[in-house]
Nucleic acid binder design. Structure first.
Length: 272
DNA sequence: CTGGGGACGGGGCCC
DNA sequence: CGGGCCCCGTCCCCA
């Protein structure tokens, strides 16, 4: 992800301090999002976003406005927004800032993919899902992800026994048992260097990811993404029990757990 | 109870 | 094959 050109100076913000230092165990993540990084590709037009060749991001749709008053949110996998991104923080440039489209339309991978397509380079496409890759090697690795867990090719993690059909995925998983990247400040260890990098920001107060709308800065890109959704006038995630709507899926999930489905089953809840 | 944010994990993809 | 990057998602805390 590249920042917009509106405000590209990076520097350290005063640390807000980590509110807590409790490193609790996390639940298993959900399966990868079927829509991948394209899930907000209908976001509003850029304001200030300059799709230069380095960024390579596609321009926003000519009329991407998400009709106000739209009551029914039928596709929670592709939330949209009427928010028009403007960077109006007149104060000192505090961080890189990301307009809505620049942030949501695509990610670095699809950006690179787009560049390759514009260059007209030959792509190797997966017959099962249609994804394309620059090399047959990459395609071969990708194809492993389509294997069934019952496949003879499936292998188990020697440490925890979790089965994988994709060898790269297994290799990545195995690394999670080897926490060799240690924080010099607090001693917390991580399996991958960029996890440590993100963690270090909690010590330094660095917040490289800024919201182009309100100027608020974040240390974590995912948190900026969630913040961006709070600027949306629309609450895309609706409880199927009480019809209440929420801007973020996590809020809806919380609602399911705490309120609407308290003491009952989540029969019509998450995952639809 | 909801909204917002901080911190982090697992896994896919590119080079 | 491995490193780096990015994504989605979760858990937790607080106002």
């Amino acid at each position: 992800m590249q920042p917009t050109l509106l405000c590209v100076s990076s520097f350290l913000l005063p640390s807000t301090g980590a509110r807590r230092n409790a490193y609790t165990s996390r639940g298993s993540p959900s399966p990868p999002h079927p829509m991948g990084s394209r899930y907000l590709q209908h976001c509003l037009a850029p304001a200030g976003y300059n799709p230069d060749k380095k960024q390579g991001l596609p321009p926003a749709p000519p009329d991407p406005a998400y009709a106000p008053g739209q009551e029914e949110y039928s596709d929670p996998e592709s939330p949209q927004s009427t928010f028009s991104a403007r960077y109006f923080n007149g104060e000192a440039a505090v961080t890189d800032s990301y307009s809505m489209d620049a942030f949501f339309i695509t990610d670095g991978r699809s950006r690179r993919r787009g560049e390759s397509q514009r260059r007209g380079s030959h792509r190797h496409s997966c017959p099962e899902c249609g994804k394309t890759y620059a090399t047959s090697s990459n395609l071969s690795r990708h194809k492993q992800t389509h294997r069934s867990l019952d496949s003879k090719m499936a292998r188990k993690c020697p440490t925890c026994g979790k089965a994988y059909v994709s060898m790269p995925a297994l290799a990545m998983h195995v690394l999670t048992h080897n926490l060799k990247h240690k924080c010099d400040v607090c001693g917390k260890a991580f399996s991958r260097p960029w996890l440590l990098q993100g963690h270090m920001r909690s010590h330094t107060g660095e917040k490289p990811f800024g919201c182009s709308h309100c100027g608020k800065a974040f240390a974590d890109r995912s948190n900026l993404r969630a913040h961006m959704q709070t600027h949306s006038a629309f609450k895309h995630y609706k409880c199927k029990q009480c019809e209440k709507t929420f801007a973020l899926k996590s809020y809806l999930n919380k609602h399911y757990e705490s309120a609407c489905f308290k003491g009952s089953e989540h029969s019509c809840a998450i995952g639809n």
